[in-house]
Write a protein that binds this DNA or RNA. Structure first.
Length: 331
DNA sequence: TTAGGGTTAG
């Protein structure tokens, strides 16, 4: 257990190589005592989310191979593998972009006869979603989970909503969102699932549906955040409805949701694409007055557009502020 | 009740 804890620390520090890990397992599996399950799970969980490092380029894959070795070599009477271990492994497979392997692990879990009521609904559903098996993900969420004795949580819904929206099936996502919030729904949606579906409608060009849902969430007492507002504002800008976009901007400020550089960027680009340079510059000034900056690429193209349309004075102003802010940063 | 996992702009 001490050895596993030390190895877990090294995983977090990015200094544990695959060879080190294999040596560790050589030792653990030769000992007469069972591998301590909790420390093992902690170690695998650390590997599952370790970024690539010089010592180990693909930690999730390493976790999968170590797990396979445990299945082969660990004494069945002292098996440290629990439903929790399988959850970590399925998560690993998702991170390694091998959802097919994750589903195979789930199949193995079912065959072991371990209790399934602790199955990690989120990891399982994410495997189906990443494998592009969207309809099965929906079916697991709505039917299969209860057969396994588990309850879907808000995150499980969230990942399914996202994949439906990615598939341009936002209306179906809205149906699921309604199921979450209806009486007896297992988990009331917060701002994230609402924002996901709102963004889905926006991407499909159904801005009025997005606005309807925006109003609905307010009625349900869920407060939109900067992400929610920015999605709608961007969609309105792309639909050339700049007056409505600005009214959402005022609405958010009035409700103490601070617009960020993404919000302003959408509006500036909206006005720019319509050739409304005065309005674009006005929004830019509002943005800088709040201490916000455009990213380099957007700012450079904004300056260039202004120059190309005979607005060199405004272009100079923006370039000047850019130099000033760089001076401030370096001081 | 062993860990940590969902949303926006480009």
């Amino acid at each position: 257990s001490a050895a596993l804890a030390a190895a877990t620390e090294r995983v977090r520090a990015g200094t544990l190589s695959p060879a080190d890990a294999r040596h560790l397992f050589d030792e653990l599996l030769q000992r007469p005592t069972p591998v301590p399950g909790q420390a093992l799970n902690g170690f695998l969980a650390a590997l599952a989310r370790a970024p690539a490092s010089a010592a180990c380029g693909d930690s999730p894959a390493l976790a999968v191979s170590l797990f396979n070795r445990l299945c082969r070599e660990a004494s069945p009477h002292a098996s440290p593998l629990t439903v929790h271990t399988y959850s970590i492994l399925m998560d690993c497979c998702c991170r390694a972009r091998r959802p097919d392997l994750g589903l195979a692990f789930f199949g193995r879990l079912l065959r072991t006869g371990l209790r399934t009521d602790g199955v990690d609904a989120y990891a399982l559903i994410k495997c189906f979603c990443l494998a592009k098996r969207t309809d099965e993900a929906v079916s697991v969420l709505l039917h299969r989970l209860s057969e396994l004795g588990c309850v879907p949580d808000a995150l499980s819904y969230s990942v399914v909503l996202k994949v439906l929206c990615d598939d341009s099936r936002s209306q179906r996502a809205l149906d699921l969102l309604r199921m979450m919030s209806k009486e007896g729904g297992v988990c009331a949606p917060n701002v994230v699932p609402y924002s996901t579906v709102i963004h889905g409608f926006c991407k499909e060009g159904k801005v009025s549906k997005a606005c309807d849902l925006f109003n609905k969430m307010g009625q349900q007492g869920v407060k939109p955040n900067v992400v929610t507002y920015t999605s709608i504002i961007d969609a309105l800008c792309k639909a050339r409805a700049m007056d409505k976009a600005e009214s959402f901007l005022r609405h958010m400020v009035d409700n103490d949701v601070r617009p960020n550089n993404v919000t302003y960027k959408c509006i500036i680009q909206g006005y720019s694409s319509l050739g409304l340079w005065n309005e674009a510059v006005k929004i830019f000034r509002e943005m800088t007055s709040r201490g916000l900056m455009l990213d380099d690429v957007t700012r450079n193209s904004f300056v260039a557009s202004l120059c190309n349309h005979g607005r060199s004075k405004e272009a100079a102003e923006i370039a000047h502020q850019m130099i000033e802010s760089e001076t401030t940063v370096s001081n």
